[in-house]
Amino acid sequence: MHVFDDLDRRLIAALRADGRAPISNLARTLGVSRATVQARLDRLLDTGAVLGFTIRAREDHAEGVRAVMSIEVNGRSTTTVIRQLRGMTELHSLHSTNGKWDLVAQLRAETLHDFDRVLREVRNIEGITNSETSILLSSV
Rank of each mutant, 00 (worst) to 15 (best):
I23Y: 03
I23V: 15
A27F: 05
T29G: 02
R34G: 07
V37L: 06
V37T: 05
A39M: 12
R40M: 01
D42C: 02
R43T: 13
L44G: 02
L45H: 08
L45K: 11
T47C: 02
G48E: 12
F53R: 11
F53Y: 14
F53L: 15
R56M: 06
A57D: 06
E59H: 01
E59K: 01
D60E: 11
A62P: 01
E63A: 15
V65A: 05
R66G: 01
R66S: 13
A67H: 03
V68Q: 03
M69N: 05
S70G: 09
I71L: 08
V73R: 00
V73G: 00
V73A: 00
R76A: 14
T80K: 14
R83A: 14
Q84V: 10
L85C: 10
L85H: 10
L85I: 14
R86A: 11
R86S: 11
G87K: 08
M88R: 07
T89A: 14
H92C: 04
S93C: 03
L94P: 00
L94H: 02
L94G: 01
H95F: 13
T97Y: 05
K100R: 12
W101D: 13
D102C: 08
D102E: 09
L103S: 00
V104E: 00
A105Q: 05
A105H: 03
Q106N: 11
Q106F: 09
E110V: 09
T111C: 05
L112M: 14
L112W: 13
D116R: 15
D116V: 07
R117W: 12
V118F: 03
L119R: 12
R120T: 15
R123F: 03
R123T: 08
R123P: 04
R123K: 13
E126A: 12
E126L: 10
E126W: 03
E126S: 13
G127W: 10
T129M: 02
N130G: 08
S131Q: 10
E132D: 12
E132N: 13
T133I: 11
I135L: 08
